[in-house]
Structures are given as C-alpha cells and as structure tokens.
C-alpha cells in the first residue's frame, strides 16, 4: 500500500480505521459475552477511543493487514509452530546435557528483499524459534544471535525467509 515513510491517502486511512474498529468490536464482544445496552455502549466508546488514539499517535497497525494475507497466515503459523517445537527440543537437549555444547555466534542474515511487515514477521519468527534471537534490525539485514552455528546457517538457506514472503505481507 503506502510507502514506508510516505503519508497514506485519505481512503487508506479510513479503510484501516474501519478494520481496526471491526477487529476491536469483535474482540470486545467475544470477551464480554454480554449484549445488554450498557456493555454495548461502553464497548462502542472504548472502540472509538482506541481508534482515535490509533489515528492520533499515527500508528499504522492495520494498514497492511489484508484478507488474503490473513488467509495465508494460518498455514505459515502452522509451519512455524513445527519449527519452534523442533528447535525447542534441540535447546532442551542442551539444557540437560552434562556439558552443553554451546557455540554462540552473532551474524547478520539477509532480509533486505522483504517488505516492512514481512521483515517484522521474519524478525519475530527468528526470535520465537528457540536457538536464534534477533538482536538488531536495519534496512537490509537482521543481526542474529544463535546458540550454535547451525541455526544461523539454516536461516541463511532462506527457507523461513521465502515462507514469510509467500504470506504476501506488504510494506
């Protein structure tokens, strides 16, 4: 949609605000479970307040969250859960081994070809996976701290990067 630093058009802002409001309203209804007038009015007020704060602080929370992206996300999350489980087992082995074979490395891995939201997802996925941790994110790479060298090597292979790209997260 809009460029990272450029201003959004009026239509984009309105659509994003509507998405935020819809998400917050559903969240409120599910959590409260009450459909009497008072809770509904309070809910509407809260949604309006948060939407106003969102606009006032210039956050762009829902600008890039589109329906196709949301539909592709569960598949990625499922794959990520599997990766997380696998590396959690690896780290757990290290914890319980009498002499942990830790060889920490700090190394950058390429992320420049990803749009902004995809970069955020990629960096968070790296941290979420035990054994790798994102230390710093700049325009074209992510600095990774890794428990053993093999983990950061797997990142260089780019399987996770291309999976993130395929979610279609835009700038």
């Amino acid at each position: 949609m809009s460029a990272a630093s450029g201003r959004s058009t009026r239509g984009e802002t309105i659509r994003a605000t509507l998405r935020t409001a819809l998400f917050l309203a559903v969240f409120w209804l599910v959590l409260s479970g009450h459909f009497e007038p008072l809770p509904l009015v309070l809910g509407a007020l809260s949604v309006a307040l948060v939407c106003w704060l969102d606009w006032w602080a210039g956050l762009k929370q829902f600008h890039n969250v589109t329906v196709p992206f949301l539909l592709r996300l569960p598949r990625y999350l499922l794959w990520l859960s599997w990766q997380v489980l696998r590396s959690a087992v690896a780290v757990t082995r290290q914890v319980w081994s009498p002499r942990p074979a830790l060889r920490p490395v700090v190394e950058p891995t390429a992320a420049g070809d990803l749009p902004e939201l995809a970069q955020v997802i990629y960096a968070n996925s790296i941290t979420l996976t035990p054994g790798t941790l994102s230390l710093d994110v700049d325009d074209d790479r992510i600095l990774v701290h890794s428990l053993v060298f093999g983990d950061v090597d797997d990142l260089h292979d780019g399987a996770m990067r291309s999976k993130v790209r395929r979610t279609g997260a835009s700038s």
């Binding site: 990272a4 630093s5 602080a57 210039g58 956050l59 994110v137 700049d138």
Partner: peptide
C-alpha cells in the same frame, strides 16, 4: 527498538 524510524509515531 531498532529500525529505520527516527522518532515516536513514525
């Protein structure tokens, strides 16, 4: 936090 942004709200 790291990143390209300069100040708050960007």
């Amino acid at each position: 936090v790291s990143g390209r942004s300069g100040g708050a709200g960007e």
